[in-house]
């Protein structure tokens, strides 16, 4: 079974990260399946009556717990492959002509939080945990940084990435990392449906043209930045300091 499931209902497609037992952590396999799903969506996008709203969410309690670093500890080539795969995926998601909504059902950490920021809109609940704890682990959040800068601006991004740790959904909403906030997790489905329904009333061509322009304005289509970020992130990850901290954290 694919780790990334697509379900379509009328104008709305839902992409579910389907690795609940690992809190949807981004492994090489999950990223490969996500690439496959996004490629499928991109190929079908030109067809008449193709879906023009994409909802991205996670199976189980978490949205996405971030990069699955346990599997790449001590293997720098594999770590670079993983980070490069994420980097390419982020640009691919951004390039989709449909409007994307991150339905952050639970923890969105590191690369998972990056995935949320790549989407055009993000919705979560007050108790979800979001953030970028990379620096705490001696790692540099270089692949996700450009997306956070585009989402909240350079000043707030600097504060968020350097302070590290995690914040509540409420705090994420206050600093602009999340656009719509529900008071509790039980409201999330209803609220997300409401937003998605409204988005789906938009003309697909009008939305796609607007999104394309916004992508040009903020440099989203420049893949070289995130690829360079992947190399930087991998080089910091390869340092003995980072490896030691990750081993301690992951119990590996």
């Amino acid at each position: 079974m694919s780790l990334a499931t697509l379900t379509t209902s009328g104008p709305v497609t839902t992409l579910t990260l389907n690795r609940a037992d690992a809190r949807n952590a981004l492994s090489i396999d999950l990223l490969r399946d996500l690439h496959g799903a996004i490629d499928t969506l991109a190929a079908a996008a030109a067809a008449p009556n193709a879906p023009h709203v994409l909802v991205v969410t996670g199976a189980g309690k978490a949205f996405c717990a971030g990069m699955d670093l346990k599997a790449v500890l001590g293997n720098n080539d594999l770590a670079l492959e993983l980070l490069t795969s994420l980097a390419k995926l982020t640009v691919k998601v951004r390039m989709l002509p449909m409007v994307s909504v991150a339905k952050v059902n639970g923890a969105a950490i590191g690369g998972g939080c990056g995935l949320s920021c790549v989407c055009d809109l993000a919705i979560t609940h007050a108790d979800a945990k979001l953030g970028y704890p990379e620096v705490d682990l001696g790692v540099c959040p270089a692949v996700v940084a450009p997306w956070l800068v585009r989402k909240v601006g350079a000043g707030r991004a600097r504060k968020i990435l350097l302070i590290g740790g995690l914040m509540s959904g409420r705090e994420a909403h206050a600093c602009g990392m999340v656009d719509v906030l529900c008071e509790s997790a039980s409201d999330l489905d209803t609220k997300a449906d409401e937003i998605v329904k409204r988005l789906a009333t938009g003309g697909p061509q009008a939305l796609a043209a607007t999104k394309k322009l916004l992508n040009e304005l903020d440099g989203s289509l420049d893949e070289s930045i995130v690829l360079k970020g992947a190399k930087l992130s991998a080089s910091v990850l390869a340092t003995p300091d980072a490896q030691q901290r990750l081993r301690a954290k992951l119990g590996a």
Partner: peptide
């Protein structure tokens, strides 16, 4: 970790 902070600041 100082090196992670420095790398992040330089990247930003």
């Amino acid at each position: 970790p100082a090196s992670a902070l420095a790398a992040t600041k330089r990247w930003l």
